[in-house]
């Protein structure tokens, strides 16, 4: 980080501030899920909320007013079905207007829809949604940075189920072969896929060992502990280093809303007005527990 050029106009947030931001992100996610008539991938949005808050408000060196600055960190949401979590995180960071997202989400002609579209939405680094594409793209970006002598990092967020795709492991091998220490993957290890729990039909364990055996620097963290996420970000190896890093974030799908947590039915869904109130109340109760 020391050698990279700082673009951020935001002061470094404290952990408490980041926790508040993550809470606000969850509120906004639920609001969208309660007001949009179609389904939102709310389970995998909520499991990402702390991670994306830590990245957008602490880790990523980006400037919403200068989105094509060559020195910016690149961010790719490989699990593209969590697009709304990225849109709202970016809105809270100053890229977009939240009200705009709510007003137009999923509508004809809107830039905001179920999966991120780089062509329609300025500031999105890659169009994703088909799983297993993000990491190879991230490798290309990291490789280009190396060749140009740029110091920024490339961040890529994947789902654990997504890593069933062979292309993820082909990219993992390519990243190690090219010694891309400027590449940082975050895996949302929520132990759920769309229709099943991991280890039930699809065995992912030994998960850390898989990445380690591909020669990556592997870090495991509680993906809902902001202090730990901040520590990880503070201690990332220099972007000149030779091993790509993967941060395995142990998370809970649906985190923050008791009836959604670890519930297959909430991979994607929509909350009516009544359930929105119930979900908000459930979220509110987690906050009381935390501050007590």
């Amino acid at each position: 980080m020391s050698t990279s050029i700082s673009l951020s106009s935001e002061p470094k947030h404290t952990v408490a501030e980041l926790e508040d931001l993550a809470y606000e992100l969850r509120e906004k996610l639920l609001y969208l899920c309660g007001t949009y008539e179609g389904a939102v991938h709310i389970g995998g949005d909520l499991s990402l909320a702390d991670m994306l808050t830590a990245l957008y408000h602490y880790g990523l060196n980006v400037d919403p007013d200068d989105i094509s600055n060559p020195h910016r960190d690149r961010f790719i949401l490989s699990k593209g079905h969590a697009a709304v979590c990225m849109y709202i995180s970016m809105a809270m960071r100053g890229f977009f207007d939240f009200d705009d997202i709510v007003a137009t989400y999923g509508q004809l002609g809107s830039a905001y829809g179920m999966h991120p579209c780089k062509v329609q939405l300025r500031g999105v680094e890659a169009s994703t949604g088909s799983l297993g594409h993000g990491l190879p793209i991230a490798v290309g970006m990291a490789k280009s940075a190396r060749q140009k002598g740029e110091k920024h990092r490339v961040f890529c967020v994947l789902g654990d189920g997504e890593t069933g795709e062979g292309s993820v492991w082909e990219a993992a091998m390519a990243a190690r072969s090219s010694q891309l220490g400027n590449l940082i993957a975050f895996v949302d290890r929520n132990h759920q896929l769309m229709t099943s729990f991991s280890e039930d039909r699809v065995v992912l364990e030994p998960y850390l060992g898989k990445w380690a055996s591909f020669g990556w620097n592997v870090v495991s963290v509680d993906g809902h502990n902001m202090q730990d996420l901040v520590n990880i970000i503070d201690n990332l190896p220099s972007s000149d280093s030779t091993r790509p890093t993967v941060v395995i974030c142990e998370t809970i799908k649906g985190k923050g809303v008791d009836f959604m947590e670890r519930n297959i039915a909430w991979h994607a869904g929509s909350l009516g007005a009544a359930d929105l109130e119930r979900a908000m109340a459930a979220l509110e109760s987690t906050r009381k527990v935390v501050s007590a």
Partner: peptide
């Protein structure tokens, strides 16, 4: 036999879908 859904501009998932 390969059988599946999302043939055409259906489902509002965007062009990946």
């Amino acid at each position: 036999k390969i059988i599946g859904t999302h043939g055409g501009l259906v489902g509002n998932g965007g062009s990946t879908h």
